[in-house]
């Protein structure tokens, strides 16, 4: 049942990303969540290559890494997002997608840096 809902979500994100490129990270995240790691990595590649010529949100890249379970990379990109004053970052304290980071001491430190702790 849950699986089915993820598939529906992926279908919606595919449509969204086709309209607005800024939804591509969400799609990547969904692939990662359902175990389609290759597809998620492809999307990450795509995001990195897009970032060569236009702004790609570091916060959203961090989000894809979170979904892939790669915490180190996720923190690396959260720091980048902070440097770039990424607009997504303002919700870092409450974003449910970042759940797996919350127990990590680096997350607390990060919130402190943001003035949110």
């Amino acid at each position: 049942m849950k699986k089915l809902m993820y598939e529906e979500a992926i279908a919606e994100y595919q449509k969204a990303a086709a309209i607005l490129r800024t939804y591509l990270p969400h799609l990547g995240c969904m692939y990662a969540v359902i175990g389609e790691r290759e597809k998620a990595l492809e999307i990450l590649d795509e995001l990195h290559s897009q970032s060569q010529h236009r702004y790609v949100s570091d916060y959203k890249i961090a989000m894809v890494y979170v979904c892939l379970g790669e915490k180190d990379k996720a923190f690396e990109y959260l720091d980048k997002a902070y440097e770039n004053r990424d607009s997504g970052l303002h919700a870092v304290k409450v974003d449910p997608l970042l759940e797996i980071l919350r127990s990590d001491p680096r997350f607390k430190a990060f919130l402190k840096k943001m003035g949110l702790e």
Binding site: N84, R85, D86, S87
Partner: peptide, 13 residues
């Protein structure tokens, strides 16, 4: 424009 990541904050804010 930054909020939706069309531009970086450095460019638009």
């Amino acid at each position: 424009l930054s909020g939706y990541n069309f531009l970086s904050a450095h460019e638009s804010i």
